[in-house]
Amino acid sequence: MALSRLDSLYKAVIADHSKSPHHRGVLEGVEQLQLNNPTCGDVINLSVKFNEDAIEDIAFTGDGCTISTASSSMMTDAVIGKTKEEALELAEIFSHMVQGQQDERQKKLGESELMAGVSKFPQRIKCATLAWNALKKAIERSQ
């Protein structure tokens, strides 16, 4: 597949996640964690339901740019059903990836791997990592 066609596919998947985000909403009976990106105004409210050591369910609301919303949607898909340890590993892989560091473990990210292009736009890294940082805080609070 030509690089421009692949780029178009990546952009389409990101746009789709932004327009129709997965796991959008609020989980009842679960504390919400709010994080914001003061440089651009993105805000995420994340609620995570844990079943002992596993992420049983996850949802988010908030206002954000295309990158922030798509990343939130992709993150929820990637971590649901994972253990806290696995989710923290994915957050680390994602953070390194959007900073331009290549890692064979990126495949574990699922569609979130499509966000690798953010590394070319340093001002957008905080947008892409907002949901992942919220997830890390939610896991820290649960322990």
Score class of each variant (00 low, 15 high):
9 L>Y: 15
52 E>M: 00
86 E>C: 07
116 A>Y: 08
57 D>L: 05
24 R>Q: 13
52 E>N: 11
76 T>Y: 00
9 L>K: 14
17 H>M: 04
4 S>Q: 11
74 M>R: 03
120 K>E: 06
109 L>F: 10
42 D>R: 11
86 E>M: 04
119 S>F: 10
17 H>Q: 08
9 L>H: 14
48 V>T: 06
136 K>G: 02
6 L>N: 10
110 G>C: 03
125 I>K: 03
138 A>M: 13
121 F>T: 13
131 A>K: 03
101 Q>G: 02
47 S>W: 02
142 S>V: 13
113 E>H: 12
60 F>Y: 06
130 L>Y: 07
134 A>R: 00
63 D>I: 14
85 E>R: 15
29 G>H: 09
46 L>W: 00
67 I>A: 00
95 S>I: 07
123 Q>A: 15
120 K>L: 13
27 L>K: 04
72 S>N: 06
123 Q>L: 14
74 M>I: 07
90 L>T: 05
31 E>Y: 08
70 A>Y: 01
92 E>C: 09
106 Q>I: 15
41 G>T: 12
89 E>Y: 04
66 T>N: 14
72 S>D: 00
139 I>W: 01
33 L>E: 04
67 I>H: 01
130 L>V: 12
102 Q>S: 15
20 S>H: 15
76 T>S: 08
105 R>A: 10
21 P>Q: 05
54 A>S: 14
102 Q>D: 14
100 G>E: 07
46 L>S: 00
54 A>K: 15
7 D>C: 04
55 I>Y: 02
143 Q>F: 10
64 G>M: 02
124 R>L: 05
123 Q>W: 11
135 L>G: 01
112 S>M: 14
75 M>T: 04
44 I>D: 03
22 H>M: 07
80 I>P: 01
